[in-house]
Each structure stands twice: as C-alpha cells, then as structure tokens.
C-alpha cells in the first residue's frame, strides 16, 4: 500500500518566479518524513507538488519528475484527479465539509471515487477510518451530527479519517497542528506514529520539536534571501539531523541561530 516517492530535478515556478529549485530526493515508504525550514522557503510548495495541488494556484507549475510506484505523476496524460486519489492531504486548518455530518465527511472522498456503496460496507468504512484516526470512540454516538460541531483537534482527526478513507498510498500533511492546542497536537502526533505502518507520510512543520518527535527522516529547506528560490539543503535521519547535521546551515537553523 505505502509507496516510496522519487523526486528528480524538480523545479517549481509561480509564473516567472522560481520558488523551489532543483530538488532530488527519495521519500521512504512506511515512514514519516518531516520538512522543516523558515517561512517562505518552499516546503509547503514542494509538498503540494507531490499531489499536484499547487496547480490550483493560478500560474503555478512544476518541471521535473515525481515518481510514485514508478509512475511519473507529471507524465503527459496523467490526470491530477487520479493522483490526488492516491496521495491524500491534510491541511493547516481543519476543513471538514460544513454542510455534511461526521459520517458523510468520512465518506465524501469515497463517494466521489465510486458512487455505489452498500450501507453495510459504508458503515464498516466509516468505523475503520474513524478508528484509524483515533476518533471513533469520541464520535460513534453522533455520526449524524455536523462535523463542524467537533473541537478543532477532533475536526482535524476527522479530516485525517476522510483522507485515509479513500485508502491512499501517501498522506501529505501541511502543518496539521498549527491551529491546534497542545493536547490535540499530541493526539495527532500519536496518530501519525500509528499511521506510518500503512502510509508514506510527509509532514511540513514549523515546529522543530514536532519534527524530532514524529519523523524518521527530516529534510531542511531554506532560501538564501527574499526573491531567491528555496533549496532542499539536507535530508537525513531525524536523529542525525538534530544532533550532528552535515551542513552548517542546518546546524545554524536547528540551534536557533537564525530563522
């Protein structure tokens, strides 16, 4: 189920502006890769190119190769809709569909993929997805209540349940805890630990402690100045990155000397 992602010579543009330059990296399956770096360094932009969500932004495009399971998602003829069904995403702020119940939120993606779903298999999927997001016990008695009625942390776990319900191979998380309190953050981090058994997870975070807590490998992005493109400086085992990084820039950032 989980797949490695091979990125080769990826350049990302916003119109004429080169936002991220020349990224080559392999993201390991069944592991958590954290991307850290200062604001505006392109880590979120890079994350979005892994499921072609950057194409939603007018003028944004990517050059290079991103292979998932040996298939280049930028090859001609590849439908971004299909890419996004294989690569799920969790956003900065919890964004359950406001008009839908908890149950319908979980099923939203599945209903897009194949319209017909028997009542019993839908029930099963709702339960397994919510269990997978550590939310089942909290909401099993109110599945028909609106998803917006949950707390922020519960909403974010609902969004994770919605993402894993379509059984993707990869899950991208774009600062998933930045809008949450510490307790909810802990719940999400615990969840990430469990989820890596099934998925390839890539998480962007501003919080270096979070990166060191949840990830197996950490990549460091930075820019050399405003208007310059972002670069992936270094990616390595998380422990090594936080104790003995190879690059001086990484060490400066991690030790708090800048950023």
């Amino acid at each position: 189920m989980a797949q490695a992602i091979n990125v080769e010579d990826l350049n990302i543009f916003y119109g004429d502006f080169l936002a991220v330059e020349d990224v080559t990296v392999t993201l390991q399956p069944r592991s958590v890769t954290a991307l850290i770096g200062p604001s505006g360094c392109g880590k979120s932009t890079f994350l979005r190119t892994l499921n072609r969500m950057h194409e939603v932004i007018p003028g944004a495009y990517a050059q290079g190769k991103v292979e998932i399971e040996g298939q280049d998602i930028y090859a001609p003829g590849v439908d971004p809709v299909n890419v996004r069904r294989r690569v799920g995403m969790v956003f900065q702020k919890p964004n359950p569909f406001p008009t839908m119940s908890i149950r319908d939120n979980v099923l939203a993606g599945v209903k897009l993929n194949n319209k017909r779903l028997s009542r019993s298999s839908a029930d099963e999927l709702v339960e397994s997805s919510l269990r997978g997001a550590n939310l089942w016990e909290e909401v099993k008695d109110r599945l028909d209540k609106p998803g917006m009625g949950l707390s922020g942390g519960q909403q974010q776990r609902l969004c994770i349940a919605r993402a894993i319900a379509v059984k993707p191979e990869v899950i991208l998380m774009d600062e998933p805890c930045s809008a949450l309190d510490p307790i909810s953050t802990l719940a999400i981090e615990d969840l990430i630990h469990e989820m890596k058994q099934d998925f390839t997870i890539v998480i962007v975070t501003h919080n270096m402690q979070q990166a060191s807590r949840v990830s197996d490998r950490t990549g460091f992005f930075t820019i050399s100045g405003t208007g310059k493109p972002g670069h992936l400086i270094e990616i390595d085992e998380t422990e090594k990155m936080f104790t003995n990084p190879t690059e001086k820039q990484t060490e400066d950032y991690i030790s708090g000397r800048f950023g």
Binding site: R84, F91, N95, G109
Partner: peptide, 17 residues
C-alpha cells in the same frame, strides 16, 4: 472558502464534483 474547495480537490474531486 478556499480551504473547503481544496479539501474536495485533495480528495480527488473533479471541478464539477
């Protein structure tokens, strides 16, 4: 809200969906 539309798109929704 932009975030709502992105939520649907990230689930693999087409424009009409």
């Amino acid at each position: 809200p932009r975030l709502q539309e992105e939520a649907a798109l990230a689930l693999g929704a087409t424009r009409w969906e």
